[in-house]
Design a protein around this nucleic acid. Structure first.
Length: 154
DNA sequence: GCCAACGTTGGC
DNA sequence: GCCAACGTTGGC
């Protein structure tokens, strides 16, 4: 089982949205590096940190669980969707998604605090100019984050 | 709203 | 395949 961090803009889709829905597809990943990880590495049963970006309180806010392997993001075929991609085809989809399920909220862990932790220095998240919306989280990084949010047991 | 840091596109 | 121009992300 692997750990991941997914970014979302809370104005569009927040941890509260996920909590209300309980389960949701994670559509709209339109970056090749993130796409490759979603499609090839993210697996059913993996655990995910939900991160709020581009908002007042940026940081980790909760946990979700991956409940499907990757499958084609159907919004790429929908001309009315903001995620429509005219170059994608049913025969060779370009973009993929997984479904996730709400696990819990976490006490807000700010990006600022994460940046101050040497244990998290290798995360793409805390590096300047990072734009990766789906990224791996190591066991050690996960443990550190659980400790920082009061859920740590090592 | 600003702007640095990326990623993508397209002419050559 | 290079690289300038352009578009987007995302913290501040």
């Amino acid at each position: 089982m692997a750990y991941w961090l997914f970014k979302t803009e809370p104005d569009t889709f927040s941890i509260d949205t996920l909590c209300d829905l309980n389960r949701s597809c994670w559509e709209g990943v339109r970056n090749y590096q993130a796409r490759n990880m979603l499609r090839d590495q993210v697996k059913l049963g993996d655990e995910v940190l939900i991160y709020h970006s581009s908002c007042k309180d940026v940081g980790v806010v909760g946990i979700a669980k991956v409940v499907t392997d990757a499958y084609p993001d159907h919004f790429q075929f929908d001309p009315d969707s903001e995620y429509f991609d005219p170059k994608a085809s049913q025969e060779s989809p370009r973009w993929w998604m997984v479904d996730i399920e709400y696990v819990c909220h976490l006490p807000y862990l700010s990006l600022q605090k994460m940046k101050a932790m040497p244990e998290l220095a290798a995360m793409p998240l805390v590096k300047k100019g990072n734009r990766l919306s789906v990224m791996p989280v190591s066991d050690q990084e996960w443990s550190t984050i659980m400790s920082l949010t009061g859920r740590g047991d090592g």
